[in-house]
């Protein structure tokens, strides 16, 4: 395995705002990485730098060992799919598919046509007349069929209805199995992509906050529920990722899971309920802007 994407202290500043702040991460070949983070965390900026649309302010960024900005090699081997993809208004939908096929050497026209028909697109239709969801679906078809060594989807399911979303993720997985490639898919709904991805890259405040296999994310944290003093005693001085009070004296707390099995056993014996934390919930806890939560706005506990 070799690294397809390497970023070291990558920083992107706009006049008043730092969007990426010393971002460092490496993405290995033929993995599917879920890039997650709240709105405004810097996901889109990062992805646009990787495809050479935007220019980094400082730090190092390499895709296929080359700086992406103005690299033909990067452009020819990568595709960036989002809901802003722009096409010439004069071309019909099927002509757009054919045009894409001429640009990308691995393009699978048969697959594109199959998906095109499956989603009932009109070959003679025009992109600008499609609904938001249809646009996303059409762009996704191009993104899958292009079979680019680096395929990037930025919030690809915007506007798609539930059924189409499922079909899209399934199509992406099946084609990935048939034709492995490096895929980065951004989303602020982790639960949508958690089965699809191999690694999670969590972006927070312009940094790589977490980068680990999804299977490890599922074991990253643990939740205690029970009498408040007991819970507090068990979690000690660990950083509380999330806490919630239920009734007068019951507390639910999520902390990083670095407990020994016997500690957990003792906690159970002292009457605490211990459970794992769903990765999508964990994602919310990890990315919340500051300590506290919505309750604090209302001056609660």
């Amino acid at each position: 395995m070799s690294a397809i994407v390497e970023c070291h202290n990558l920083t992107k500043k706009y006049r008043t705002k730092t969007v990426l702040n010393n971002f460092t991460a490496t993405i290995e070949e033929n993995t599917i990485t879920g890039l997650i983070g709240r709105n405004g965390a810097g996901k889109t900026t990062l992805l646009k730098i990787l495809t050479g649309y935007l220019k980094e302010t400082s730090g190092k960024v390499a895709v296929f060992s080359e700086r992406p900005f103005n690299s033909l090699k990067v452009s020819a081997n990568s595709i960036f799919v989002d809901d802003q993809m722009s096409y010439p208004p004069a071309l019909q939908l099927y002509e757009l598919i054919e045009a894409a096929a001429r640009f990308y050497p691995n393009f699978n026209l048969k697959l594109a046509k199959g998906l095109f028909d499956y989603f009932s697109f009109d070959p003679k239709g025009y992109h600008k007349r499609l609904s938001k969801g249809q646009k996303s679906t059409f762009n996704a078809i191009i993104g899958i069929a292009a079979r680019c060594p680096l395929t990037i989807f930025d919030e690809p399911t915007t506007g798609m209805d539930e059924g189409v979303r499922k079909d899209f993720y399934r199509a992406l997985l099946k084609d990935y199995l048939e034709f492995p490639r490096t895929i980065i898919i951004s989303s602020h709904h982790l639960n949508e992509i958690e089965d699809l991805i191999e690694d999670v890259l969590l972006l927070k405040n312009g940094r790589a906050f977490l980068h680990l296999p999804i299977t490890e994310l599922k074991e990253y944290a643990i939740a205690f529920k029970g009498r408040k003093d007991e819970v507090l005693r068990r979690i000690g001085d660990r950083d509380v990722l999330h806490k919630q009070y239920i009734g007068a004296d019951t507390m639910y707390a999520v902390v990083k899971n670095d407990f020994q099995e016997e500690d957990l056993e003792q906690a159970r014996r002292s009457g605490l309920e211990i459970s794992s934390v769903r990765s999508s919930d964990l994602f919310v806890y990890l990315t919340k802007p500051a300590k506290g939560g919505i309750d604090d706005v209302f001056g609660g506990n």
Binding site: K174, L177, D195, L196, I197, P213
Partner: peptide, 17 residues
Amino acid sequence: QYQLAEMYNINPATAAK
């Protein structure tokens, strides 16, 4: 791992684990 990935709609690396 690939058959499992296809059957369960999961990432093949996860299936391999």
